[in-house]
Design a protein around this nucleic acid. Structure first.
Lengths: 167, 167
DNA sequence: ATAAAGTTTCAATTATTTTTGAAAGTTTAA
DNA sequence: TTAAACTTTCAAAAATAATTGAAACTTTAT
């Protein structure tokens, strides 16, 4: 497998994974491309390599910037804008985990708390609803806390110890 | 909030979360409904509560069964089939984690391994591709291992210790 | 054997999401 | 200031995914 084949395979796999996780293909592929590019790329180059339109590139770059995993880069002497991905893999993981937690998990946890707090009228079905949503609340809350702590402190002793214990 | 409001809020939130994670709404909602139902439900009842067609109910129930989180239940004296969700929350989490790992993470890890194993031709871009995909490989592999171990042994001392350390 | 009850399948429809492309907007250099 | 270079926006089109509904299929009771 040569460079281009390997890069394209990575980009297309990353795009397919994104799709499976509710992230659109262009967004995931732009990220993949920037992540493995040693130099920042212009919008033109991104459009070219991925075969996507200007509008598509522009909108998805904006989303990636909102997510905090892509940056605009100014290259001296160049008029146009260049884009680069967050290059530190741990930092990338941290940002994605934080954002997904904030946008998706936390709101769900909030609803689970509300629903599990309804008054127990003594009926079987109400009891079951309260019990199950309470359990999901505990699970989601624990998982969310762990996730955030682990990615936050990827290099600390807790994680290292943990890895030794679990591997 | 009364029972029905609470249940419907839970079902609709679960459906929305599913959508965000690449799971279709009907599938996530059927699961939510069964998860909080004290008794197994017939396809008729599921269609009725969620307002979906017979075909939709049938296909999504099949998917849930393939995922291993919904079961067919035979009720003596009843001709039709009833459906029930896995009721143990830890077991549910374990099954989902295992399945997502198997279907999505493992294939991605495989590609990352392939791509990061291409021959280093000494160019900057090849070096970068190898380096970055290797880092992602390590991250994904570690995360996957941890996830599986943690959900596998939710009650054991490692996890308990871990929670104390991290909370 | 057969008909009623129940389930599955899948082509067609509907809904949703993504992408395009061109017009409008912005920035920069002269 | 102005015009070229570049970027953003968004309505329309295309692509994709979800859903329906009815025919085909299966099971069960008599």
């Amino acid at each position: 497998m040569n460079y281009q084949e390997a890069r394209d395979k990575f980009i297309s796999t990353w795009g397919a994974l994104g799709t499976l996780w509710g992230i659109n293909k262009a967004m995931a592929q732009i990220h993949a491309l920037l992540f493995v590019s040693p130099e920042p790329l212009s919008m033109e180059e991104i459009m070219e390599v991925l075969g996507i339109s200007r509008g598509n590139a522009s909108m998805n770059l904006r989303s990636l910037i909102e997510w905090g995993i892509v940056y605009k880069v100014n290259i001296p002497g160049e008029r146009k804008e260049f884009f680069a991905s967050e290059k530190d893999t741990s930092e990338l993981a941290r940002t994605i985990a934080k954002e997904r937690s904030r946008r998706e998990i936390q709101p769900t946890i909030k609803v689970l708390k509300e629903v599990s707090s309804i008054e127990d009228d003594g009926t079987k079905k109400t009891r079951e609803l309260i019990k199950k949503t309470k359990e999901l609340y505990d699970l989601a809350d624990t998982a969310d806390t762990m996730l955030n702590k682990v990615v936050d402190q990827e290099q600390n002793w807790v994680t290292k110890t943990l890895l030794k214990l679990l591997k």
